[in-house]
């Protein structure tokens, strides 16, 4: 493991940006692979949006690159404040599958590989 951070109030974007800035690299995240809580997508589609996800986006949206086709509800989930959220881990490519299996076996079956770290400006790019 090269970097770890706790995803909490600033959402996945916000804590991902902290990792990108600190590492001076770009985080490339595949939106479709990001795990969501059971009802979260349906509620977000229905328009239930937290005030804090607006505040978060307003304060760092300029540093996040989104595909034009990304629906608004999905962007809100990626900026959604997490209370006691998961860990975001950057791990060497060859160790990634084994570590994921270890995390899932330790009681976190929702854990997923969600992207990678690439050379580039310190931003978060959603693909």
């Amino acid at each position: 493991m090269h970097a770890v951070t706790d995803v909490t109030g600033f959402g996945l974007f916000g804590h991902g940006l902290e990792m990108a800035r600190g590492s001076d690299l770009m985080l490339r995240i595949e939106a479709a692979t990001v795990p969501l809580l059971g009802e979260a997508a349906a509620l977000a589609r229905a328009g239930f949006i937290t005030g804090a996800s607006h505040r978060n986006w307003d304060s760092y949206g300029a540093e996040v690159e989104l595909p034009v086709e990304l629906p608004e509800w999905q962007r809100h989930l990626l900026a959604d404040p997490q209370t006691s959220g998961g860990l975001l881990v950057a791990v060497a490519r060859e160790r990634a599958e084994a570590l994921l299996a270890e995390i899932q076996a330790a009681g976190y079956p929702a854990a997923r590989l969600i992207g990678d770290v690439v050379a580039g400006p310190p931003r978060v790019r959603i693909i």
Binding site: A52, L88, R93, A96
Partner: peptide
């Protein structure tokens, strides 16, 4: 590096 997220999003 590859990125792992250990829990689902959407608590808010």
């Amino acid at each position: 590096d590859r990125l792992i997220l250990t829990k689902g999003l959407g608590v808010g």
